[in-house]
Computed example of a mutant assay.
Amino acid sequence: MPSSPQPFNPGGQSLMVRRLLVGLVALVAVALVAGLIARHTGGGHRNPAAHPATSTAFPGPTLSSGSTAGPSTAPSEPTGAATTSPVAPPPHTSDPIAYATAFAQALWTYDTRTATQSQQLAGLRAWLTSESAYADPDAVASQVPDPTLWDRMRDNGQHATARVAEGHLPTAFNSAVAADPAKLTVAYVYAVTVTGSQTITWHGGGRGAESRAITLAVQCRPGHDCALASIAPTVYP
């Protein structure tokens, strides 16, 4: 079977965004987010006061702790990506779980026979938030095979389809927000764990399936579509 198509390299992520993710789940988000803001003064952040929370118990979108896969909203045109992008465009949705499951579906689906590595990477990066302080392009790149490996996979005709089982907010994240809802209102970044499976096919009738799980940082400011911020170094329950 060819080499694993989705290598994960936490060391390639932005340390700043990785701290944000870990902080949100470990109940220390206030200090970490404040540090991000301080390091990006004038970075174009919206004032959280201009975006009132939809719930006094849980700022931002109204959510349950779990959700079945797949957004019910229409896809948008990917910003900055070619119209022939091999990657599905991000959906118009304010639900971080719907957005995360849609991104996981796009991430775990590829076809090296028709797409180049740079096209695949550009298509996935089109999902990133436009707020540079929170966008972590290195985390996305760490999920895509490098050009050399991609070419080897193409020689084998390797392609993959995905099935997303479910997405949910990790228990620790829910507990952190319930304990102090104001923690969420600086960056409106939600941790979402998505599980599913990936079926990989290659020349000669080769075929294999693997389980997948990933925790994503999704930014969903009230009144705005969600966008990807980063990918956590750990899959949270």
Rank of each mutant, 00 (worst) to 15 (best):
residue 94 S to D: 15
residue 86 P to Q: 02
residue 133 A to V: 07
residue 115 A to M: 03
residue 115 A to H: 11
residue 100 A to C: 07
residue 94 S to H: 15
residue 95 D to Q: 10
residue 113 R to V: 05
residue 150 W to I: 04
residue 87 V to G: 09
residue 137 P to C: 08
residue 154 R to N: 15
residue 105 Q to W: 13
residue 155 D to W: 09
residue 118 S to F: 15
residue 125 R to F: 01
residue 122 A to I: 01
residue 100 A to R: 00
residue 95 D to A: 05
residue 97 I to P: 02
residue 130 S to A: 10
residue 144 V to P: 14
residue 104 A to C: 09
residue 89 P to G: 03
residue 131 E to W: 12
residue 152 R to I: 12
residue 105 Q to N: 13
residue 136 D to S: 04
residue 156 N to P: 11
residue 102 A to Q: 03
residue 155 D to S: 12
residue 98 A to T: 07
residue 101 T to W: 09
residue 141 A to F: 11
residue 154 R to D: 15
residue 123 G to D: 05
residue 151 D to E: 13
residue 147 P to E: 06
residue 153 M to I: 12
residue 139 A to E: 03
residue 140 V to S: 14
residue 133 A to P: 09
residue 93 T to W: 13
residue 116 T to K: 08
residue 132 S to A: 09
residue 138 D to H: 13
residue 124 L to N: 02
residue 93 T to R: 11
residue 91 P to E: 05
residue 146 D to T: 07
residue 147 P to S: 05
residue 157 G to E: 10
residue 101 T to V: 06
residue 85 S to V: 06
residue 93 T to H: 14
residue 149 L to E: 14
residue 127 W to G: 01
residue 105 Q to V: 10
residue 88 A to R: 08
residue 85 S to P: 03
residue 90 P to R: 00
residue 97 I to R: 06
residue 111 D to L: 00
residue 130 S to K: 05
residue 140 V to I: 14
residue 90 P to C: 03
residue 143 Q to W: 14
residue 107 L to R: 13
residue 114 T to V: 07
residue 91 P to A: 02
residue 140 V to G: 13
residue 128 L to R: 01
residue 108 W to F: 10
residue 151 D to N: 12
residue 125 R to K: 12
residue 143 Q to F: 12
residue 116 T to H: 13
residue 111 D to C: 01
residue 116 T to Y: 13
residue 97 I to L: 06
residue 156 N to V: 12
residue 127 W to K: 02
residue 112 T to W: 08
residue 108 W to V: 05
residue 105 Q to A: 15
residue 98 A to P: 10
residue 117 Q to P: 07
residue 98 A to D: 15
residue 120 Q to I: 03
residue 84 T to F: 11
residue 129 T to R: 02
residue 153 M to H: 14
residue 153 M to F: 13
residue 137 P to N: 08
residue 119 Q to R: 08
residue 118 S to N: 13
residue 154 R to H: 14
residue 130 S to W: 06
residue 147 P to D: 10
residue 106 A to H: 10
residue 117 Q to I: 05
residue 143 Q to E: 14
residue 103 F to M: 00
residue 111 D to I: 01
residue 135 A to T: 00
residue 90 P to F: 06
residue 146 D to H: 07
residue 99 Y to G: 00
residue 150 W to A: 07
residue 116 T to I: 07
residue 132 S to Y: 10
residue 119 Q to S: 12
residue 97 I to W: 05
residue 133 A to F: 07
residue 126 A to F: 03
residue 120 Q to V: 06
residue 100 A to V: 08
residue 94 S to P: 10
residue 114 T to I: 04
residue 91 P to F: 03
residue 135 A to I: 02
residue 135 A to P: 06
residue 133 A to H: 04
residue 116 T to Q: 09
residue 149 L to T: 15
residue 103 F to I: 01
residue 113 R to P: 09
residue 157 G to P: 08
residue 148 T to I: 11
residue 98 A to I: 10
residue 116 T to A: 09
residue 127 W to N: 01
residue 127 W to T: 03
residue 144 V to N: 10
residue 120 Q to D: 11
residue 112 T to F: 08
residue 135 A to V: 00
residue 98 A to H: 13
residue 86 P to A: 00
residue 87 V to M: 08
residue 157 G to H: 03
residue 87 V to N: 07
residue 117 Q to C: 06
residue 124 L to W: 07
residue 88 A to K: 09
